[in-house]
């Protein structure tokens, strides 16, 4: 995942918490071995190498994660899509900072993008790709999924209060802090990461943010975000940042990407279909900059 994970644990026994922290921090390392797109021997690389030619059986937990990602893809009308590796590669986001591809290359990549190209066999838990060149990429759920697994482990160990994050863009709040009901998580302003846009209260909830300020490249003064719209093949625009709160970090991770791509109206539609989340979007103002924040669903957000 190439992501830094951090955990903050609260409790009376420091030694126990240190052991617990070290133990749960092994979880993202283990998942990286399974989900990585860089490691040739990860389950995902194995799938991408073989599934164009044969049915590849997945380990059940990975099969479940993939089917869950596919359900989110369906709910978001393809704004989030786990079968988007070809597109990511085409834009040079796989290993590099990105490049502007030819329109033909984008069209070609689109032919190899989309969950519709995957055939799943639930009996054998196997996956087959409809053509060569399709690539599953769980980058937009992996981080959140790791946080969910870590939170489960902490609960099983009896930890009642913790805050964990992966690369600061996804956070999980377990219980509340020592001195309050819920954890307060600050949202940064898309134009100035030092500035705080607002504070969200979280208790047993996950939060993820997708923003155009996180990863992007520029060509002739134009900014291309790393978040691609799998339906058009081009970087999504119109939103500066999308923050989603829900019970699971895997969901918020994927849904924040979906909300960023869908924009305000699309996210509202998504919310009527799948109401288990709340969101706040910062649309791009007509002349650039940030427009007024739009809330969707019930979010414990205090602006300013």
């Amino acid at each position: 995942m190439g992501t830094e994970f951090e955990v903050l644990l609260v409790g009376p026994d420091r030694g126990f918490l240190e052991d617990a922290a070290a133990q749960v921090l092994e979880e993202p390392v283990r998942l990286e071995e399974q989900l990585s797109h860089y490691r040739p021997d990860s389950d995902i690389s194995d799938l991408n190498l073989r599934a164009p030619h044969e049915s590849v059986r997945l380990e059940p937990l990975l099969y479940d994660l993939l089917t869950r990602a596919m359900r989110l893809a369906a709910a978001s009308e393809g704004a989030f899509d786990p079968a988007c590796g070809a597109l990511i590669r085409c834009w040079g986001f796989f290993r590099g900072r990105g490049r502007l591809p030819e329109a033909d290359a984008v069209r070609e990549a689109l032919l190899h993008t989309g969950c519709g190209l995957l055939t799943l066999d639930p009996v054998h838990r196997s996956v087959r790709f409809g053509r060569e060149g399709v690539q599953v990429h769980l980058g937009a759920v992996g981080k959140g999924y790791a946080l969910d697994c870590m939170a489960d482990q902490l609960r099983a160990l009896g930890v009642q209060s913790a805050l964990l994050h992966g690369g600061t863009s996804s956070v999980y709040a377990l219980g509340g802090p020592a001195d309050g009901e819920s954890w307060e998580v600050g949202l940064c302003h898309p134009d100035d990461r030092e500035r705080r846009l607002g504070v969200v209260q979280l208790r047993d909830r996950a939060l993820s943010t997708s923003g155009d300020y996180e990863q992007f490249f520029e060509v002739e003064g134009r900014r291309y975000s790393h978040i691609l719209d799998p339906r058009t093949g081009y970087p999504a625009g119109g939103v500066r940042s999308a923050t989603v709160v829900a019970a699971s970090a895997a969901d918020t991770d994927a849904l924040s990407t979906a909300a960023f791509v869908l924009g305000v109206e699309g996210t509202r539609r998504l919310h009527t279909r799948a109401p288990g989340f709340a969101a706040v979007l910062i649309p791009e103002a007509p002349g650039g900059g940030c427009d007024i924040a739009v809330r969707i669903g019930d979010i414990a957000l205090e602006l300013g």
């Binding site: 071995e33 490691r39 040739p40 021997d41 990860s42 690389s45 194995d46 991408n48 190498l49 073989r50 690539q135």
Partner: peptide, 29 residues
């Protein structure tokens, strides 16, 4: 093992065509 074996045989590398030049299964598998 994926890439250097090819070079060991003095053949062209697969270049970027292959997502990963290496073997796609871990040692435990």
């Amino acid at each position: 093992a994926g890439a250097t074996t090819r070079q060991d045989k003095r053949e062209r590398t697969a270049g970027t065509a292959l997502a990963n030049s290496g073997v796609s299964k871990n040692n435990w598998a």
